[in-house]
Structures are given as structure tokens and as C-alpha cells.
Design a protein around this nucleic acid. Structure first.
Lengths: 237, 237
DNA sequence: TGTCAATCTTATTTCGATATTTTTTCGAAC
DNA sequence: GTTCGAAAAAATATCGAAATAAGATTGACA
């Protein structure tokens, strides 16, 4: 859509990726090729190509002659992803604080202010965020975290960080659908931003770890609640 | 071939991956689809699927309607990959030393001894290793490093480690074709092994870092020599 | 020398044929 | 009457080949 969609396979890859990350395609569900080909209006070849690429992003799994599934989510994997993400993200942030120049500071500031504009009047109530505002917040949150590490000077670190961020985002979306309102995520972002601008790498990394750990904890609660609901689905059969 | 080749796309993926990692398909070279389809005796569909998956492994790059290339190698990327690999690998080794049980110790020991059996009568001369012995050494080196971290208890860490190992292997293969004989790589492996068995995580990680840094240094020299040769290819035009 | 158009090469995609897995049906045994 | 298993049927994944469309190249013309 927005960026380089030179081929149908490209476009389909991006669409599928979005639909998996935001949960429109449920975790663990079977991806029936014929249905997908219809929904996305493509033939088998570009579709399979897109799915093959998504395997590399750890968003899709496949089994021999049996087809493709959306990669499942689990509490164990949530822990795993969160911990590895903290490792990568702090390493990258540390490097960025060492290497970042004035332009980087400017970009981080712009990203932070854009994010702050959304976060400052976030509902403290327990009503769920309207979908389109959620999309805006997701986009700016992603942009802020990406901007922070953009000066790390390590393409590999940045690639891995993006991979792990995307994994985390899948989990986070689960919790946002169940969430009892927003914790003070904005304060956490501000703490990271301030420490970064002061070039206090140690503090910036600690704040990042805290931020990731709290997010993971929130997701963990939401997922635990969900799986309890699955076990005891109430009255309706 | 050996493992799960349930589909043609699978087999082609593995074959291509091997041919890229061991350098049979040169870094940066164009992957002409028709030619590959002939060489690997497959149609377009499985071939493209395999290439799409290789993009996720960072072994292949593609550009819009222009096709596929073997991902290029560069000195900058070598540094980048080596550093990130050290980060991931030490983190994983540290966790493995914390978590590893007796079975893990046994597996590591078996892998080390298999590797040692090859390394102990490695030529100290400057003759290049015969290809089939090189393959054996590569396989056992890979198995040893994989065994070390296998008890890390973090699937994600292990996945990323495998990705980075594969990247490093591409670079290492370059240097082995130019190499002036083997440095005492066996002593380095033994040092890592001994520290690991003593559950001395700090020392094991330091030895690993040293091992990776030395390997990277060797590759760097080889690549620098190669690119000098490219610039001044001698008499022949 | 630069630009445009015709042509050729190559990547991309569609579509239909084939092979595999899953489900259903039917029958026999317990 | 129920359970188990085999065989047929349906659904689905995989693959190859031909059609399409995009990009690169060449050569004529200005």
C-alpha cells in the first residue's frame, strides 16, 4: 500500500503481516490457501511467496504437505521474546546514545512528541480505545522505539530489534483488547526519552528494561485471563 | 536430502542455502531464475518460494521487478555480524551454563570430542584443506557451537544465534579459501569447553568473545587481501 | 550526443494438472 | 448397538508450464 509494493507478492506479504500482527488473523489458525487467495485477490504463487517470507519473520509456520498456520502465541514465548528483546534493545539504545548526532536527537524528539500528543489524552477509564486511535498509537509507538535505536550504527542489531518488536506487538495487541485501561505508559516513555536526551545510557537502558518488563507483565495477565475464559467459557455452549 | 524434505520447495531451499553459505553461489551474484530452475530441476513456483524464505535468512536480497541476488558480503557487515553474534552467543552460553544438566554436559562433550578428532591433526602448513575434510570440520564446528548453547532455555536466543552463525560461516568460508594455514583454533575451542564444563560462565564467555574476535580478524585480513586483488588483478586483462 | 521507440530478455503471475492429506462412508467384528 | 478399520470421496496443498507485464538494450533519428 504505502511503501514499495512493486509486486503482488510484496503487497500480499505486507497485508498478511499486518493482519497477523494486529490479530485479524488469529494466532494458531489454519491459513487455507484458497480462501486467502480469494480474500487478498491473488493467485497461489504470490500468496505462497508471501507466506514463505512470513515464515522468516516467525509469523507463520508450515508443515510438510499440510499447509500454513499463523504462528501460535504462548506465555512461555512471551517471556522468551521479552527477555531477548530487552537484551537487543538495550544494546542498541546504548550504542545509539554513544553514536547519535544532533539529527538523531531531532528525530527522536519529533517521534516522542508525536507519541506524546496521542498519549496525553489517553483514557484512564476502562473503555477500550477506538480502533483507529489504537492504530495511530501503535504506529507512533513503533516509530518512537525505532527512532531511539536508529543511530546504533548496527544494521543487524536494528533488524533483530524490528523482528522482536513485531513479535511483542502481536502479544501487546492481545492485551489491549482485554485491557482494563492504560497504565501510565506515557511516564515510562518520557523517562526513556529524558534519559536518552541526557545521554545517560545506563538510566535509559534501565528505564527501557522496566518498560518492557511492565508491558510483558500486563500482557501476561491478559493472556492468563483469556486462557481461563477458554477453559470455562461460561453458560453458552 | 537428509532432513525433512517434504516438498520440492523445501529441498530447493536447503540446497540453495548450502550453496550460498559455502560460496558455491558467489556473494552479490545475480540469481537468474531460469538458470536456477534448470540447475535444481524445479519449476518457478518452488524456486521462488525457496528464494523468499532465504530472504528471511538474510542470504538473498530482491528488488522489485528486477529479481534476486545472493546477499553481498562486506567488511562493515562482517564487523556488525561478529559483534552482534558475540552478544547473542555469550548471553546464550551464560544461560546454558546456568541451566544445563548432565545430559547437556554429555552432548557438549561428545560434540567437542568429535570436533577435536578433526582438529588435532589439522595441517599447520599452508596447504588448503581438502574440501571434504573442510565439510566435516564445518559440520562439527557448527554442532559444537550449537551444543554449547542448546541448554539456554530460550528458543528465540537459539534461533537468532543460528541465524548469526550462518552469516559468520559465509564469511569464514571466504577466508578458508585464502588462508595461510590454521591458527590454533583448537586451543580456543578447548578453552571454551573447559570453562564451560567448570561452569565458569564468565571465563567461558570471555573465551567465546576472544574466539569470535580472532576469527573475525582472520576473515577481515583475507577479505582485505581479496579486495586488493580485485582492484589490481595482475597482468591479465 | 541525447532521446525515443522497437525489441529482447527476464521476472511475475495465472491457471490447470497432480499428489497428498483429511474426512466421510460403509461394513465387519465384538 | 458400538467400535474399529478400510476404502472411497472430498478438500487441500503442491507443482509445472504457458501467458503476461515489466525492465533493459539496441539502434535509428534528431
Amino acid at each position: 500500500m504505502t511503501s514499495s509494493d512493486k509486486t503482488l507478492a510484496d503487497r500480499t506479504y505486507r497485508q498478511l503481516r499486518g493482519d497477523i500482527v494486529n490479530g485479524r488473523l488469529a494466532a494458531g489458525s489454519k491459513l487455507k490457501l484458497e480462501g486467502l487467495a480469494q480474500d487478498y485477490a491473488v493467485g497461489m504463487s504470490p500468496l505462497r511467496e508471501a507466506l514463505a517470507r512470513l515464515m522468516g519473520d516467525l509469523l507463520v509456520v508450515s508443515e510438510g504437505q499440510r499447509g500454513f498456520w499463523v504462528a501460535p502465541l504462548s506465555l512461555d514465548e512471551l517471556d522468551d521474546v521479552s527477555r531477548v528483546r530487552a537484551l537487543i534493545e538495550t544494546e542498541a539504545l546504548n550504542a545509539a546514545i554513544r553514536n547519535g548526532d544532533a539529527e538523531w536527537e531531532h528525530e527522536v524528539t519529533a517521534a516522542f512528541e508525536a507519541l506524546a500528543a496521542v498519549e496525553e489524552h489517553l483514557p484512564h477509564t476502562r473503555e477500550p480505545l477506538p480502533p483507529e486511535q489504537l492504530e495511530i498509537w501503535e504506529a507512533r509507538n513503533r516509530a518512537f522505539h525505532a527512532a531511539l535505536v536508529s543511530a546504533a550504527g548496527s544494521p543487524m542489531l536494528i533488524k533483530l530489534r524490528a523482528l522482536l518488536y513485531q513479535q511483542s506487538e502481536r502479544y501487546r495487541r492481545v492485551s489491549l483488547n482485554v485491557s482494563r485501561g492504560w497504565r501510565n505508559v506515557h511516564d515510562e516513555h518520557r523517562a526513556i526519552y529524558d534519559a536518552t536526551m541526557q545521554r545517560n545510557a545506563l538510566r535509559a537502558c534501565r528505564m527501557t528494561e522496566l518498560h518492557l518488563a511492565r508491558t510483558a507483565e500486563e500482557v501476561r495477565k491478559a493472556m492468563a485471563a483469556l486462557s481461563r475464559d477458554d477453559d470455562a467459557p461460561g453458560d453458552k455452549a
